[in-house]
Write a protein that binds this DNA or RNA. Structure first.
Lengths: 204, 204, 204, 204
DNA sequence: TATGAATGAGAATTCATTCAT
DNA sequence: GATGAATGAATTCTCATTCAT
């Protein structure tokens, strides 16, 4: 009977993995996946490069775990929003707010996703990235089009252009957002929505 | 004008250099600087890896030339706009339009700049990136603040947040923009400005 | 027009590959494929480990080339024998003689084949090993069975046992045979055939 | 009896050792000593890699025990045959039969011995392999030469060639023999001897 | 101008082994 | 007796770069 997790007291140590992944994510985000050496991650975590391979199969599998954990959580949030049956404007507001919350919680993962996802999506192992992107587009673009049809959003704008505009500006925030800074994610979301919905020009 | 070296070496046919740089930029943009091998560039250009070193000192110097050529041209455009003495709204419109024109002309360079500039800015050779960023912020943030003060832009928004929002909005487009597509850069600029200035929500 | 092989004088250097492969084969045969380091091969060939990768994709691809070159030649010889329409005894004699000739020419490759083929045959890249073994069995076992049916060979022996007996003892010779020794391959084949066909006991 | 160490350490349940050694031998035989990881052995035995080191000093010491146990038993059998004062033909028959019995009992050890002994014989720890080989040659070659001198075996054959032929014939069988198959070791020995002594050709 | 061959400094990864618990 | 975590040395492989031709 190996692997019979001790009842209460012991730390069985899936936490070690978690710590190491957090460290790896931080370094990947800061330097880029390719430019990050396994040695550097190990150094940062306080062990030797080879020792990482006790916990993970490869550098790539660390990346994989980081990204998929992030996407799992992201979609949990998005799905809740999409299932709530809100109107287009409220849906958009909720999606944006949820996104900034994810950036707050998974900043390194989001940054990695932004930078690496394009040249990763091809590899079979990361097929879920493309899949996620597809669902993402479906959710956002759908909301935008519904809003335009129902009169909540302007109908004179190219929907795809609007989609890219929203998508990019939300997620790029991960590159400068620092958790624990002066703005909580909800506050950033609020201001962002204010700009996006009403524009930055003064209304005459 | 950074790194205008070439003190001793004889300069070869300058068109060949240009072709090679264009090829390199394309590959850097597609795969990332680090992930791009010199061999790959050479292959794409139809020669062997070693032969590139007749034309360039190093892989890094190719990157350098690509980025500085782009920034030189960008600033030529920006400086003309800034010197024209326009109001804040017109300045903003001109900066955005000019930016989309640069994306149109230097798409690979812009994409590289977006992806690599953060971890390049540290190295002395690329000091001009940080310098450029400083001037960039000065120009945009200044325009925004001036606009808020003069009543052209809303005063209830955090200026830095607005700045980042605009900056990202514009430049991230390089990641999906394809020259020769259905929208000319001026048309994209127009729609972007429409969204940014007036918002996407229908006014009641 | 790159790759236009110079007309006569130059050594275009596919020979370099050949030399390196011969060296590699020698070392693989002496120490076993797994126990052989790329460094060791390079050392023996007078260059650095990394330099081998200019000529070959991987250690495995060297093994691949060595084995497939050997098998190609082996089957050229076997096919000639099998196409000659000889009787079973003459066919067997010719196959054995041809085998010893191949051992003479490709001793290291044969030794490697003996030692590594079992755990290699599984991998897709080395699928031709299994295929070769199948044809091999077909040729030898067929000859033995034909001989037993036509009265050239004893019919009281288990054909598969006889096949293994012949197969193994011929090829194991690669482990002790030294080309340039006192026995030419044809002489070894002759004595070997004498033992196998007539036995080592004195006839009463 | 080489390497009977174990001066200080307490010895654990000897049956456990035996089981583990049998497992190790099986894996070594299947994949080769070098290609076998300690982890793999442990896995097969149902424990973790580190735990093997409670039972054995090192991977090499497992190999050592496997090989020396086999050789001890082999020589017990051979010595009995050689001490029996038989004629050359009967001695040869008895040696062959004894050899097939050992293959039947120690198949993995024999396979390992075949594959690894050449490049092991150099290391001091495995000096007994060379010693065993020497005695082996002495016994077999001596019997062959005696048989040729006394008229039991053909005198026109090269004795060393005959020796290698017999030696290989017998031991290579370990590579395909499966205990519990259709042929008992004595039956295989009988057929092998029949081929070797009388040949496979039909006598005219 | 370009090629072919090589260098050498890392890179990721593997694995026998150790050891506190 | 066994586990989990780590070590550290070695291994395969990559790649920017050099240089004689």
């Amino acid at each position: 009977m190996p692997n019979s997790k001790k009842t209460t007291t012991e730390r069985p140590a899936p936490e070690r993995r978690g710590e190491l992944l957090a460290t790896a994510a931080e370094v990947f985000a800061a330097q880029g996946y390719n430019a990050t050496t396994v040695r550097r991650i190990a150094e940062e975590a306080g062990l030797l490069a080879g020792s990482l391979y006790y916990h993970f199969d490869s550098k790539e599998s660390m990346l994989d775990e980081i990204l998929s954990a992030f996407l799992d959580e992201l979609w949990a949030g998005y799905d809740a929003v999409l299932a709530a049956g809100l109107g287009p404007r409220e849906t958009l507001e909720a999606l944006v707010t949820e996104s900034f919350r994810e950036i707050d919680r998974h900043r390194p993962a989001v940054a990695i996703y932004q930078k690496e996802s394009p040249h990763l999506a091809g590899r079979p192992r990361f097929g879920y990235l493309a899949e996620s992107q597809r669902r993402f587009e479906e959710a956002w673009l759908g909301t935008i089009e519904r809003g335009a049809a129902e009169g909540a959003f302007r109908a004179d704008l190219d929907a795809r252009l609007t989609y890219r505009f929203l998508r990019d500006t939300v997620w790029v925030a991960a590159s400068w957002y620092r958790p624990g800074g002066q703005h909580a994610p909800e506050e950033i979301a609020r201001q962002y929505l204010s700009m996006v919905l009403d524009g930055i020009a003064v209304r005459e």
